[in-house]
């Protein structure tokens, strides 16, 4: 049984059909990289998976539970799906440790001392132990994104979604964030990443999914996909980004 199972997913914004029938299964522990041009529906697909957008048609199964906008409260959903945004979206008025502790305390009602222990643990995992009392504005983009990853991990989700987690970063800061994600992948975390980092997709992911015009155009192991693209669209895309 797949951890995430998506069937015939459709989503329109007004007249514009962004997702035209997506089928995808992701096993526990799998790392799936979604690539494609902007406007191909990658981010919308990711946002449907955690119900930031509600799909119009089709089904999303998440560990036996069907998502239809009402079956899970945001609280339950957050313990299944974590998300990292392109723009970090840390809470600027809270310190690093408070950013990470907020959801466990407020949503899970974890006692403060326990929440603090969890927060310190996940912050250590992303290499941010020495900045727990800093405020987001005092951190570099790479550090902010690592805190955002820790914040998502503190809810102990089954799958972590990353929406272009490194696209807003200066080139020299990309590496530190990718290393954290790579470590998570090695530990067996299920990751679904929308990414423009082709080298990362190639080295770390188990499967690459190429989206084109609202559909999954091609998918397969990274080596196959990158070296022997089957469709002209993918070949063209790879040529344009590598």
């Amino acid at each position: 049984m797949a951890l995430v199972s998506v069937k015939d997913l459709h989503k329109s914004f007004g007249e514009l059909e962004v997702l035209k029938g997506i089928d995808l299964e992701v096993e526990a522990g799998e790392v799936v990289a979604i690539i494609g041009r902007s406007g191909s529906g990658k981010s919308t697909f990711l946002r449907c998976l955690n119900q930031l957008e509600h799909h119009d048609w089709g089904t999303i199964q998440l560990a036996d539970q069907r998502l239809d906008g009402t079956s899970m409260t945001p609280g339950e959903l957050s313990q299944n799906v974590g998300m990292v945004f392109q723009s970090f979206n840390l809470f600027p008025h809270k310190s690093v440790i408070d950013n990470v502790m907020l959801a466990p305390v407020v949503v899970k009602q974890t006692p403060k001392s326990e929440a603090r222990r969890i927060a310190e643990e996940v912050l250590a995992k992303v290499g941010m132990s020495d900045k727990i009392d800093s405020y987001p504005a005092q951190l570099s983009g790479g550090q902010q994104q690592r805190v955002a990853i820790a914040r998502a991990l503190a809810m102990n989700p089954k799958v972590l979604l990353c929406d272009e987690a490194t696209s807003a970063l200066d080139p020299e800061l990309v590496g530190e964030v990718l290393r954290v994600l790579e470590d998570l992948a090695k530990e067996g975390m299920t990751l679904i990443l929308v990414t423009h980092e082709m080298k990362f997709a190639r080295d770390v992911s188990h499967r690459v999914v190429f989206m084109h015009q609202g559909r999954i155009h091609e998918s397969g192991p990274p080596e196959t996909l990158f070296t022997r693209p089957q469709t002209p669209e993918l070949a063209q895309f790879i040529a344009s980004v590598v």
Partner: peptide
């Protein structure tokens, strides 16, 4: 709006 979204995906109502 990113603040709302971040709060939402962390499970806050």
């Amino acid at each position: 709006s990113g603040q709302w979204q971040a709060a939402r995906v962390l499970g806050l109502n």
